[in-house]
Design a protein around this nucleic acid. Structure first.
Length: 255
DNA sequence: ATGGTCGGCAACCGA
């Protein structure tokens, strides 16, 4: 089984890139964040023609998550299924006996902002979500844009960026509390190198070419699945964008 | 050290 995650920053703007990529890599499952499309405008037919069933939840302009699958999708759930209601940032479904939890974690804007407090609370709530719905040895994959770089290996300029809303000890601790439910970081399971990123800020000049990046997208798996994982890697192929600075595809393959 | 650019959508917000 081959699975992947991709932050689209508009599904419709990236649709050709996504479909080309699906044709080339033929993953069984692709989880997408920041679709930025209302449900009524979701491109179901184009993805269906490419061989994928889709489930999704979006809103106007912001956020939005989707799961694409060549295999049957069952038991679809949206968001934290308790109060308070949240933006469309979580979609979960069962595929081939595996529970996928696709998350778009709040970015946080700046430290001390309300958006940052929302992010910290979001991570605390996510830990409770996993405790409520799963056991640590269930077959669960938690993946998506987690908006945290964990160590100095995971950002291009750690000394300059330390304290950023996506790179600080307070946030790393909250991430670790969620991961300690029973998740393994599949990329780090297979690769110990720094400089392996999944996102390059649009605003950095030639950021992609200079590899001025962040590792903020993850595929996390519970231990029984991690034992079956044969590879986890970033597809760094530029996708024909004039400025290929998007998040890119992170892939994991299982026996 | 600061600001840089996209996308959505129609003035700025969010990343």
């Amino acid at each position: 089984m081959k699975i992947a995650t991709f932050n689209a920053n508009s599904l419709r703007a990236r649709l050709d890139i996504i479909i080309d990529w699906l044709n080339q890599y033929a993953p069984d499952v692709l989880c997408i964040q920041e679709t930025k499309v209302q449900d009524k405008d979701f491109p179901i037919a184009a993805l269906g023609d490419a061989g994928y069933d889709v489930v999704f939840k979006g809103q106007k302009s912001y956020n939005g998550v989707a799961i694409l699958s060549r295999l049957p999708i069952e038991n679809v759930r949206f968001g934290f299924d308790d109060e308070p209601k949240d933006e469309p940032r979580i979609i979960a479904a069962d595929i081939s006996g595996i529970s996928f939890v696709n998350t778009y974690v709040p970015q946080g804007r700046e430290v001390d902002s309300d958006m940052y407090l929302y992010k910290l609370q979001w991570y605390k709530r996510l830990r409770l979500y996993f405790e409520k719905h799963f056991e640590p040895l269930d077959s669960v994959i938690w993946l998506g844009d987690l908006n945290v770089a964990l160590t100095d290996k995971d950002v291009h300029s750690p000394d300059r960026l330390r304290g950023h809303v996506c790179f600080n000890p307070e946030l790393t601790e909250l991430f670790t509390e969620v991961a300690d439910f029973g998740f393994v970081d599949l990329f780090r399971l297979h690769c110990d190198e720094g400089g392996q990123y999944t996102f390059w800020d649009y605003r950095a000049t030639n950021g992609f070419e200079r590899n001025v990046g962040w590792r903020i997208d993850y595929i996390m798996a519970t231990k029984p699945l991690a034992e079956r994982c044969r590879s986890c890697y970033v597809d760094r192929t530029p996708r024909g964008l004039e400025k290929p600075s998007d998040h890119t595809f992170l892939i994991a393959e299982f026996a």
